[in-house]
Amino acid sequence: MQPSAVPAPVHRGEVSTPAAGSPRTAGAGPTPVAGPRGSAGRNDGPKEPGRARARLYRFGLGLAGVVGVIALLELVVRLGLLPEAWFPPPSEIFPAFARLVVSGELFGPVGQTLQGWVLGILAAAAVALPLGIAIGSIELAHRLTRFMLEFLRPIPPVALIPAAVLIFGSNLDMKVFLIAFGTFWPILLQTVYGIHDTDPTLRDTARSYGLPRRARLVRIVLPSALPYIATGLRIASAIGLILAITAELVVGTPGIGVSITDAQSAGDAQDVMYAWILAAGLLGFLLNGSLQAVERRVLHWHTSFRGEAR
């Protein structure tokens, strides 16, 4: 439940390299993601059916895994290996979940959690993106802030809950603040890192063709930082959900977390509690999935998506 400190800047498909200056050989990432590039990228047509079948096969395997684990859980509980009083079998959790959906009870708390998540991440991004762009493009600012960022980043956002409650009380503002604080760092650091890591040859190309400063930022630097920023947002998304539910559980700000504690204290409603936990899990899964789908579209040109989108 403790959200871990924000991870160090990462870039999809690359081993995270130590900060600045390390020249990046374009496309020659050390990881196997570069694989599909040659084969799938170049011959567009003929391999299509084979790939679709492979994808279906992968999906099928994944589904089989999920079903298997659920069946195993059911068995373990039915056999009495886990006490049924605390661990209701999946065959009770799923109906409880279905009842929440049908009665519409699910949507209020999910909406409240989602609201905090959206507002918090928007607030964080609204500050972190421009700030990250500025720090990443101004060398002096980069040097000045480097150590400070490294120091602030590891503060676990949950440590701020008491302060946040004092400042904001226990309502939505407090949840939004907590999420904004926690998601600010990954977005900021990834932005700084992405901007700073723009290939110098690309910068030189733009400069030698006389692109003005602003155009270089918009047409060269930002697009090449976009994969890093997307990763930052995905990390932020996961942290944001953890913090939303933490705030709800600990402080009682309305949302899924409150429904979990309510179900817990209602005594005879273990299945409902697990149904809410399931809801939190599904929400995280959907959020991550949608972000990835957007990423796949926008970054179709990037090494880690090449060959999938075209």
Partner: peptide
């Protein structure tokens, strides 16, 4: 105009071939 020795790194991967050729012209 300057054609770089690192030609492949001087191309924008998010732009098509035509986009790569035409982007300086606007400026």
């Amino acid at each position: 105009a300057y054609v770089f020795q690192d030609y492949s790194r001087s191309l924008l991967p998010w732009q098509t071939v035509a986009g790569n050729v035409s982007f300086p012209l606007k400026y």
